[in-house]
Design a protein around this nucleic acid. Structure first.
Lengths: 312, 312
DNA sequence: ACTTGTTACGACATTCGTAACAATC
DNA sequence: GATTGTTACGAATGTCGTAACAAGT
């Protein structure tokens, strides 16, 4: 709905640097500079004062950034309103998925429904991996993407977006096949002495608990990663480092095998859906239906186990 | 500042047809359809119901068009505000010119000033010929273009934008060189019997007076053109038709020569500047300076004629 | 030494227009 | 028959990323 260059301009103003803005938007520095330059010449404005230490907005730039923020908010709001008015059976629910945010579990549930939930059409939208942008995507939920299939820390998104937990994902370790621990079914914290483990820095959810336990255990070298990414998996396969992982990432990289960890206390995340706080009726219906289907499946498997117990 | 496709969407909603919208925006029909289609799939919306008789907005489409109009207004406003805040010597005044809206007169004046008006930098922006879009451009004056050099009917723009008249342009006729009247210095209405004259339909300014006189004279065939355009000049050169013209268009087409008309009453337009009703200080200063320079020149030429009279 | 902004250049994607087609008024 | 929307395809345009550079912190 709005000029894409505004994203670059706002990011540059917020970070005070074209390079940092580029990293934020996952584009190169020259791309950011070009976008700002073309915008400036097109409207005859000078938005930033450049120096080799970074960029600072001019008065005009600051004014425009303020307006741009408002414009971006309004753009998303307009789409949401239009979407809400559309007849429900013509509007698809767009589920954002990626290698690291797989929708398989949800798609399985939905397929079991076999179209019994009439009038909801599901569309898959590919999501960029690299968690720096996930916050942006969630902030604009309802624009290009309606719901996201992902693992999440339950309390991390309260107030930001709605969450629907479908299954529990205990944290485990992705171990390169060559590693000694790769053949183990499960490991204790003591087994990990002398290894190098890559994980997110503090403040990104439930990984902090794991970090505490690692640090207390001693003998473990921790290496920060700024976000989960396929490159992180590649790096671990190359260097032999271990990586904090989840069961749903078991088949992401053929060179890495998941090994369970005997945590002294439960350490894990939820897998499920993230959806807007004010969802479209259609989206709300979809989320509700998924919740129902998950319940049905849970009950079925529970009944199965009790029946098995009776038979024994 | 906003997604260009919104122009196509709004135009389609207003005209009820992709084809008409294309003509309005001076792009082809498939281009309009593509823009709307990509927008629809990108946001998962159906904005228009297509039929071979035209297109009608869906409820969602109507809602979005309403929001889009607001967004477009705001975009222009944001640019204007940012421009106003910029330090005056960094912001150029962008003068819109084209073959049919030449800036020569203004540029001459400005050059005579020889940079004595400090801190105003003049930039030339090419303007599309074809007057259907001129209204849009004027509506967005202050966005990409600050001032326009053009001929205009004085009362036609009151309330829409500011006007500065620099010279009077009596209407004349552009006659193909092969035509019998081409060798005449001036013609009367009676001379025009049997000719075909192209002109704008009613409601486009002072041409209506000329039309009245032609119709009253009789024996003159009138052919409507929907806007002035280089193609119109080419057409007249090809078909031998006459064309209502102005002295400033004398050299537009080598095949057409301007011949003055003995109008029973004055028929003409003003040449000068169109500028926003709420101009930037820089733009206001520019317009004022141009007015001053024109006055100086007028006085100089007046003094010259009186001196010549004294000498006699 | 590291980071920043700029330029040049090649690869890629997008967008446009023309033409030909099908369906409707 | 005139107008409308759609599709296909070639061309022009725009955008991005890599690399190499220059300059400041």
């Amino acid at each position: 709905m709005y000029d894409r260059r505004l994203d670059a301009i706002v990011a540059a103003a917020e970070t005070g640097s074209f390079a940092k803005a580029g990293r934020l938007l996952h584009i190169s520095t020259p791309a950011v500079a070009k976008q700002v330059n073309t915008f400036e010449t097109e409207y005859g404005l000078t938005l930033f004062i450049r120096s080799h230490g970074g960029v600072t907005p001019t008065p005009a730039g600051a004014e425009l950034v303020e307006g741009a923020r408002d414009l971006i908010r309004r753009s998303d709001e307009i789409i949401r309103r239009a979407r809400r008015r559309a007849s429900p059976d013509t509007v698809p629910v767009r589920l954002g998925i990626s290698m690291l945010r797989p929708g398989r579990r949800i798609l399985d549930l939905w397929q079991h429904d076999a179209g019994r939930t009439a009038g909801i059409r599901l569309e898959l939208v590919s999501l960029p991996d690299g968690s720096t942008s996930i916050t942006d995507i969630i902030a604009r939920l309802g624009g290009t993407i309606d719901v996201i299939a992902t693992a999440f820390a339950p309390d991390h998104w309260t107030g930001v977006c709605g969450t629907l937990a479908l299954s529990y994902e205990p944290l485990c370790l992705a171990v390169p096949r060559g590693h000694a621990l790769a053949r183990r079914a499960r490991v204790t914290l003591d087994d990990l002495a002398g290894t190098r483990i890559r994980m997110l820095p503090r403040g990104n959810g439930t990984d902090d608990v794991a970090r505490d336990l690692f640090e207390r255990a001693g003998g473990i070298e921790l290496a920060d990663i700024d976000h989960y990414d396929l490159d992180v998996f590649n790096e671990c396969a190359r260097t032999g480092d271990l990586l904090i992982s989840k069961p749903m990432w078991a088949d992401v990289h053929p060179q890495l095998v998941n090994v369970a960890v005997d945590w002294p206390e439960p350490v894990g995340m939820q897998y499920g859906l993230l959806y807007p706080t004010d969802p479209t009726p259609t989206v709300a219906a979809f989320v509700d239906r998924i919740a129902e289907l998950a319940d049905v499946e849970r009950n079925a498997s529970a009944r199965e186990t009790t029946e098995a117990g009776d038979a024994r």
